[in-house]
Structures are given as C-alpha cells and as structure tokens.
C-alpha cells in the first residue's frame, strides 16, 4: 500500500472545558475518498478545520505528506509551528466551506485567479486560463465576470470548488458543502463533486449529511460519535451493515 498523505495520531481538541475530540487516529491515502458522518457537535468539522490549520489541536500529531503540520523543529526541540511552517505545509490542502466564503469584492474569475497569482506566483495568463477551464468544468463558464452576489447558492458553491481546484491540492476538504443550500440546489453541487471524484488523483475528505451520496462516492466512511471514531469501513459496511446501535439510530433519523 502507498504511504498515507494525511495521518492523524491521537489527536485531541478541546474548546475551553469542552472536549470535542478525544483521540483521533486516521490514515488517508492519496486519491482516497473519505466521508465523515455523525451527529452535529460530534467534531466532524473540527477534524478538517485542524487539517486546514484553522484550529490548533490540543494534543497529538497531524502529518501531511511526511511533515508534521502543527509542530516544527527549532534547535532540536519540537515547538508549535509558526505561520511560515504552516504555509509551507498547507499548500497541499484545499477546502470548500459550508457558507461558500467567496470574496464578494471580486468577480467569479478573480476569485479563482487571486491565489495562483499571489500565492503561487503564477503568470496572470496561465492562472486565467486554468481558472476559466475549472469554471467551465463546474458549469459556470458563462458567468466569469459576475459577482458572487449575482449567483444562486448552488452556483456559489460550484465557484468555491473551482477556486480550490485551481490550486491543485493533493487533499481537498468539503465541509458540509450542501447544508446551506436550498434542497433543489443540492443536486447540482453533488454532481460536480462526483465529477471531481472521478478524476481520481486527489484525496478527498467530505463531512456530509448526504448518506446516499457518501455511499456512492466514498471509499471509506467514518462514523464519528462523542469525539471518537466509533465505526469505520467501506461505505456499504458502515452504512448498510453496521451493528452499532447509535449509528443505526443516527441513520434511521436520516432515512426518514
């Protein structure tokens, strides 16, 4: 088997006195598609936010492509990573947010072009070409000069995906990307994710409430409950054949 691209080693996270994650161990291999399911407040989102460096773990290690994300070597000692170290490591990771977080002062095209130009120092023309290519891929090739406020929720979320894809991440994180959408717009967004998943080479972690979708796309499903991974396996193992009571009642609520 190939080396994992992301590894969590006994990762804990508390917010004040509240222990959200109580020891997460996790391996994600290149091109693997992982869905994280579980009740709200179980810490699903916190897992991927720590990987994106938006939250700092309380203890434990997160390894990205062989490098410890949150710790670095300083004069032979392990110390908390500084911004420079984080920047060097998180370049491999991209994220799509629940609330899109598009930049409202930029057009759709500019939203996609900004990071390649300024972060990766790409030429304007190559950044533009790839941004247009990605926007076409998500079906928005005709909206390049529109502003986010002129788009529907589903369209915004597709732009957000194109924006993340342009950076060519090795791992892409999806944080409940359909939860803020009207029901009739969910389909178009899931369609794009399926499409991306088919391309293959990128690992994906999806925090989601769409069970059928998870079953369809994910190689592996994790059920997170009360801060630990309570159940894991292939999608059909976890969603269709699990004997875990809490998982059963969780799924039951969703199936109705």
């Amino acid at each position: 088997m190939t080396e994992p691209i992301v590894t969590f080693n006994d990762v804990h996270k508390s917010f004040g006195d509240v222990k959200v994650l109580k020891g997460i161990d996790l391996d994600i291999r290149p091109a693997e598609k992982v869905a994280i399911i579980g009740p709200s407040g179980s810490g699903k989102t916190t897992i991927i936010r720590m990987l994106m460096t938006l939250e700092q773990p309380t203890s434990g290690d997160i390894i990205v492509d062989g490098t410890n994300l949150w710790k670095m070597d300083k004069k032979g000692k392990q110390v908390t990573a500084n911004e420079k170290h984080l920047r060097a490591v998180r370049g491999d990771i991209g994220m799509v947010f629940q609330h899109f977080n598009l930049f409202p002062h930029m057009t759709i095209l500019e939203n996609c072009m900004t990071a390649p130009i300024h972060v990766k120092q790409e030429s304007k023309s190559s950044a533009k070409d790839r941004s247009i290519e990605m926007l076409k891929k998500v079906g928005l090739g005709d909206k390049l000069d529109n502003y986010p406020s002129q788009l529907s929720g589903g369209q915004k979320q597709r732009v957000a995906m194109a924006r993340a894809l342009v950076m060519r991440p090795k791992v892409m994180l999806f944080d409940e990307v359909t939860s803020a959408l009207d029901p009739e717009l969910v389909g178009e967004v899931l369609e794009v994710i399926r499409d991306i998943a088919k391309d293959g080479e990128m690992a994906m972690i999806l925090v989601t409430h769409e069970m059928d979708f998870a079953l369809d796309v994910a190689d592996k499903v994790l059920f997170l409950d009360e801060g630990v991974i309570a159940e894991q396996g292939t999608a059909s193992e976890v969603i269709e054949h699990s004997k875990n009571d809490r998982l059963q009642s969780f799924l039951h609520r969703f199936r109705n």
Partner: peptide, 8 residues
C-alpha cells in the same frame, strides 16, 4: 478562513 485555505 477562505484566504487561509488558499494558503495566503
């Protein structure tokens, strides 16, 4: 957060 995710 979005800007961080784009590694700015």
């Amino acid at each position: 957060e979005a800007a961080t995710a784009l590694n700015m």
